[in-house]
């Protein structure tokens, strides 16, 4: 198991290297550069030239990439061209907020999906199943921004339960913090939950009909126990395998949700960096976002290998 994990971690390196290389090369083809964004409307060309040379932006692109990579390895992620602030500090400041969104959304998704999926699968083709499946289908078909707007209309403008937008740090009090995070997390979590609900139901249906479940039943086990101990445990494996994929969608979703709810997370940071062509910041943002996704996939694979030992030896 350990060898498997180590091999998988080593495999991450070429993937991340590939990602950074592709991004570094392509981002230069975006029109406009950070110096122009930095100087705004009022500057002379020689000032821009001097600044470009100061930041090394006038060197050949592969040289820039190697230099960037060398610094990255040493823990220097560069400085934002616009603000002069260290990129790593900025990312570390914005990252926890997004991670909280992703984690919270995951929890909400599971809290919705597991009970709904189980209930649907235990009584398939009944009104409760149809209700759950219709709800899930609608959830899957709702774009995050539209879901967010509907939640705002209902919970904030209608009921006045949660604030419309904004962010309060934990230091402002847990209640304040969580009430501001509630709608963004719900928006993300319900969409993901809809997808997982269908998956849980499908996997449960497959398992419930199988022999060992029937055996457990015939041995006189209580239905509730059969469902949870035998059926659900086995249905969980395929659910786990898609979690990595879901994290990928959540990373994308945070960009939209942070925009709608004005949450200062990594997505907002990244969008701002992209629109101001702040290369060091864009690189940091893409590296971290992809890493979250790649690491989530790794975790899922390891977990899957753990649940399903055959995998480890095949390779």
């Amino acid at each position: 198991m350990r060898a498997y994990i180590i091999r998988r971690i080593l495999l991450l390196i070429p993937t991340l290297l590939g990602i950074t290389m592709v991004v570094f090369l392509t981002i230069q083809s975006i029109p406009g550069d950070p110096i122009e964004a930095y100087l705004g409307e009022f500057y002379e060309e020689d000032v821009a030239t001097a600044l470009r040379s100061h930041y090394g932006l006038d060197r050949p692109i592969h040289v820039q990439y190697v230099l960037w990579l060398g610094r990255l390895v040493r823990g220097d992620w560069g400085k934002e061209v616009l603000s002069g602030l260290p990129v790593l500090d900025q990312i570390l400041e914005h990252l926890p907020v997004s991670l909280e969104l992703i984690l919270g959304a995951m929890i909400v998704a599971l809290m919705v999906a597991i009970p709904a999926g189980i209930i649907s699968s235990v009584r398939p083709y009944t009104p409760s199943d149809y209700t759950a499946m219709t709800g899930a289908m609608v959830g899957i078909s709702t774009p995050e921004f539209f879901g967010g707007i509907m939640l705002v209309l209902f919970f904030s403008l209608g009921l006045g339960v949660f604030p419309v937008q904004g962010y309060k740090p934990w230091s402002a009090g847990a209640g304040e913090h969580l009430s501001h995070m509630a709608l963004p997390i719900l928006t993300l979590g319900l969409t993901r939950g809809a997808i997982l609900t269908r998956l849980v139901r499908g996997c449960m249906l497959e398992v419930i009909g199988q022999d060992y479940v029937n055996t457990a039943r015939s041995k006189g086990a209580v239905e509730f126990v059969v469902i949870l101990r035998h059926a659900f445990k086995n249905a969980l494996i395929p659910v786990v395998t898609v979690m990595g994929l879901q994290v990928g969608f959540l990373v994308g979703g945070t960009i939209i949700v942070e925009t709608i709810f004005s949450v200062p997370g990594l997505g907002q940071y990244g969008i701002n960096a992209i629109s101001s062509r702040d290369y060091p910041a864009v690189m940091g943002f893409i590296l971290v976002s992809s890493s979250i996704f790649v690491l989530a996939n790794l975790t899922v694979d390891v977990l899957y290998a753990y649940l399903n030992p055959r995998i480890r030896y095949e390779n």
């Binding site: 993937t15 590939g18 990602i19 990928g248 969608f249 990373v251 994308g252 979703g253 960009i255 939209i256 990244g270 893409i286 976002s289 992809s290 996704f293 790649v294």
Partner: peptide, 8 residues
């Protein structure tokens, strides 16, 4: 391509 979050 798949290692990127799609929307990003």
């Amino acid at each position: 391509i798949l290692a990127f979050p799609t929307f990003l």
